[in-house]
Simulated scan of single mutants.
Amino acid sequence: MASKDEKNLAQVVEKIAKMDEPRRSIMQRVHEIIVAAAPELKPRIWYGMPAYAASASTPALVTLRNDDRMNLAITEKAGFRPAGGIDGALMPAAWFFETVDADTEQRIAQIVRSVLD
């Protein structure tokens, strides 16, 4: 019998597989980046979206959306810090993307690792 983590991972992979190309390939790549950057996060479905949490039974910390635009977001359950600089007390929480190049891959990995700090 598969574990809850294995079932949740299968649901995330299936959700991504149902997306239309070229978004399916892009979201699959983002999923791979997240899993590699923070293997301690557990994939799961959160409000119908691929998401990543500390455990199979805790709230999601990071979500992926495939709406009008593809989006990587940190949920309110993650620890936030003010951005500082020109953004002052604003707290970055969502990033839209259309493609994933090497720089974007690195930034996604940084963002995902930040929820573990």
Rank of each mutant, 00 (worst) to 15 (best):
G88N: 09
G84I: 01
K42W: 03
P22V: 01
Y47H: 12
I111F: 05
T63Y: 05
L116D: 04
A54N: 13
R65W: 12
I111D: 05
R69C: 11
K42D: 07
Q110N: 13
F97C: 03
V112Y: 03
D68L: 10
Q28C: 03
Y47P: 06
E76I: 14
M49T: 09
E105F: 07
G84D: 02
R44A: 10
A17C: 02
L90W: 12
R107G: 11
A60P: 00
H31C: 07
N8T: 06
T104H: 11
S55T: 11
L64Y: 01
Q11L: 13
G48Y: 00
G88M: 09
N71A: 11
G79K: 15
K77F: 14
E98K: 15
L90F: 15
P22T: 00
Q11M: 11
A53W: 02
G79I: 15
I34T: 05
R107V: 13
G79S: 15
Q110W: 12
R69T: 13
A51N: 05
W95S: 09
Y47D: 10
P43R: 05
Q28R: 10
I26M: 01
V12N: 02
S25R: 05
A36F: 03
R44Y: 04
D5I: 10
K18I: 06
P39Q: 04
P82H: 00
Q106G: 15
L72T: 04
K7W: 13
L41C: 05
A56I: 07
D103L: 12
L64Q: 09
Y47N: 09
D5E: 15
A73N: 06
M49E: 11
A73K: 06
W95V: 09
A89E: 15
P43H: 01
A51L: 04
K18Y: 07
P22K: 00
P39S: 06
M1E: 10
A109P: 04
I108F: 11
P50C: 00
T99V: 14
D67L: 11
I16Y: 02
E32F: 04
A78V: 02
R81Y: 12
A36W: 04
P50I: 01
R44T: 10
R23Y: 07
A73R: 08
I111Q: 08
P22W: 01
E6L: 08
R113N: 07
A17E: 08
H31W: 07
F96K: 13
R23E: 07
A73S: 13
L9H: 11
I34C: 04
L64R: 03
M1Q: 10
K77D: 14
